[in-house]
Design a protein around this nucleic acid. Structure first.
Lengths: 211, 211
DNA sequence: ATCTTAACGGAACTTGCTTCCCATTAAGGA
DNA sequence: TCCTTAATGGGAAGCAAGTTCCGTTAAGAT
């Protein structure tokens, strides 16, 4: 998406980087909103540059020039999502915090609009290397935000010293995403509850040591 | 002598169902092999009906008629995979059996050919409802095959009475698939080991009761 | 306020996926 | 074995997707 700046090169940088204000930002907002809508309505397979341009009220040339393909749209949507961070819970106990995390993941994935976006993101990441990197980056930052929850738990003596925070948080998310992306089972409150409880039990047993 | 009885309808059944032997089976085999190859080489987004027909040595009309779309090809590939069942391990202990299961999943997903197929299947399931059902069915049978491993563990007293076998097995698979499909992290032997250990610890803590 | 040019938008153009048609081949039953 | 017709295969036509051209608009600098 970005290209090296060469002194001798006359090719301009990718559109949107030199004049990111005003109109450019407006266009991006409209296109990403249209993309979210389209994904919620008809899913990733029906994502169509032409229709996105029409429903965003921008020229389709612009959409092709700046995003290139449906996968490019989803990748940028992912970058947009990575910028908005929501704070981690602090219920006073690790069990409660992990439950809150599992509930947050569940709420996100079961929300029709968000769920569709995540289905699309996962599908796009399976097709495109750059989108996969963007997705990995998204979760790296998301999990890092919640890491303090685990370190506080260690400090309180709720789980063993030397527990890897990110590894524990991955264990909370994994069952939810497994059902969401692989087996397409319903994500009940029960499933989230068990995900948090199972991860905590494993952490207590010392299964997640720092490497 | 008689075909499907249509009282008012003249449309024949879908191709391949009335004469499934000989040539029809041969065509299906060639097309599914070509699909596997194409997925391993260039991934799901590059899956192209025309090219599949060419490399399978069959008419492209046939591919369109019988499978309809890339998603249809992947869905049929999934049905094909569901038919071949591999037996569960029996190491004499639940910990060993779960480790074996985790290793099996890891080996499957890290195999370049199989891994590409699973990436495609997950992407296709995110786009298509029927493919999602086929994928869910695939795992239902796969996990059912391994359920005896858990019931033996319960009988040996390694985990509490009333542990849900499938729920425990899902817990073993989840971290591996989460990394594979969502965060696209490398699946090391270590990850498989931890997945089995974490699931076992959670089961011992009684986190997976039958509903 | 004025200027330069980054970025946008409409429309024509091109590509390639998909379907239709009909001749050919062979599966399954008598 | 022969017969019926399910299923396949090649090519041409149809259509929607993606691409390019070039004039217009407005962001950011002076």
């Amino acid at each position: 998406m970005e290209q090296e700046t060469h002194l001798s090169e006359s090719r301009p940088a990718s559109p949107g980087t030199l004049r990111p204000g005003g109109r450019t930002a407006k266009v991006r907002g409209a296109v990403l909103d249209a993309t979210r809508d389209a994904l919620a309505d008809s899913g990733f397979h029906a994502l169509n540059m032409d229709r996105i341009a029409a429903s965003a009220g921008v020229g389709k040339t612009t959409v092709y020039r700046r995003w290139g393909s449906p996968v490019g749209l989803v990748t940028d949507l992912l970058h947009d999502m990575a910028e908005q961070s929501l704070p981690a819970a602090d219920t006073g106990g690790l069990a409660g915090d992990l439950r809150a995390n599992a509930e947050l993941v569940r709420d996100t994935l079961t929300d029709p609009r968000m769920g569709a976006v995540f289905h699309a993101v996962i599908a796009a990441a399976a097709c495109d290397e750059e989108c996969a990197r963007a997705l990995a980056g998204f979760y790296r930052t998301r999990l890092a935000e919640w890491a303090p929850v685990v370190t506080r738990g260690v400090a309180r003596g709720e789980i063993p010293e030397g527990t890897d925070p990110v590894e524990l948080l991955r264990a909370v998310s994994a069952p939810l995403y497994y059902r969401f992306a692989v087996t397409h089972e319903e994500l009940t409150a029960d499933v989230a509850e068990r995900a948090a409880a199972a991860a905590l039990a494993a952490a207590r047993a010392g299964v997640f040591p720092t490497p």
